[in-house]
Design a protein around this nucleic acid. Structure first.
Lengths: 168, 168
DNA sequence: CGTCTCGTTGAGAGTTTTCAATGTAAGTGG
DNA sequence: CCACTTACATTGAAAACTCTCAACGAGACG
């Protein structure tokens, strides 16, 4: 797991061997079985988790507020966690991690801008299509009701859209 | 203008006098009169602009793609611009700027997460109220049709919501 | 087999958009 | 200063879209 993380980081920035070794000490590993919760609504999000992706209730993590989101595992998962305190220490001890997160967040902002534009201006069908096109593998693996929730649509609407698209 | 920028940066990170002086060379100033365009849809966004805020078509700026957004001045404005090339050089020459942008983007992500949740799950009235509450000064200064556009609503809907709220 | 979760379908209700008309206030040029 | 234009806001009515509620279906799993 830690190797995957370091590889991921090195795709974006130069990380010395020394820093890579130090970095490892800031994380710890956790396994989740399907449906097990990482974070419940109302708790404060203490961790970040990696899967090729970082996930969190970001507002809760950064601003130490109660989470508005639930996060649970759709499939059995291995996670690397970092606490908020370690996240802050990490960027101070290994300055290149500021660059890593800057690039990570920069890309994330572009994606969120796009999601926001789609959410604001598109019909349910366009939202569904954009989701399926941008993440076809995920769309296949997760329940339709989660896609609906992600898009801010009712499961029934997604079901009807799928039916309509099948006949085209 | 440059002083405002440096002050802004120093609220988030430590910037040496030397780096502050160097930083100035990466920007140039531009004035826009009301309704003058900074960026037209279809052009590639070369600049970032500051107003207490950074603005751009971020996808166009970062990924060198054609802009999906128009950006024009609602009021006469003074801007500091930075080109994409200078933005990249800036973070290499002044590493603490990676930290500055990391924190800037981190906060921006939290805000966008919130906007996205509101956009996905709220009614038109809730969207309008959340916008007015989070930015009352802006809501007073700009045309209602721009608020509508920002929220992904029609101007008529915003007008009806305003009327309804007046009678409550 | 029973249960649980997820997905589908239909019908009606509610919300928001679109279209068209009208109102209003702020420039602009004669 | 007035008539004209322009931009923005309001209003009404109909159309379009999406949701909610309720019923039913299908597959997984103990």
């Amino acid at each position: 797991m830690l190797r995957i993380l370091i590889k991921h980081i090195r795709q974006k920035v130069d990380l010395s061997e020394q820093d890579a070794a130090l970095l490892k000490t800031f994380f710890f590993q956790k396994n989740l079985t399907k449906k097990q919760f990482l974070l419940r609504e109302g708790e404060v999000c203490n961790h970040f988790a990696f899967e090729g992706w970082w996930i969190s209730d970001f507002n809760s993590f950064i601003n130490r507020e109660k989470a508005l989101l639930n996060i649970d595992a759709i499939e059995n998962s291995e996670l690397l966690l970092i606490s908020f305190e370690n996240y802050e220490r990490l960027t101070l001890k290994i300055p290149v991690m500021d660059r890593y997160f800057r690039i990570l967040y920069q890309n994330s902002l572009v994606t969120k801008d796009r999601r926001l534009m789609i959410s604001n201006k598109s019909t349910a069908e366009e939202k569904y299509l954009s989701m399926v096109r941008s993440s076809p593998e995920i769309a296949k693996r997760i329940p339709h009701s989660l896609i609906a929730s992600y898009l801010g649509l009712s499961p029934e609407t997604v079901s009807r859209i799928r039916k309509k698209l099948l006949f085209q």
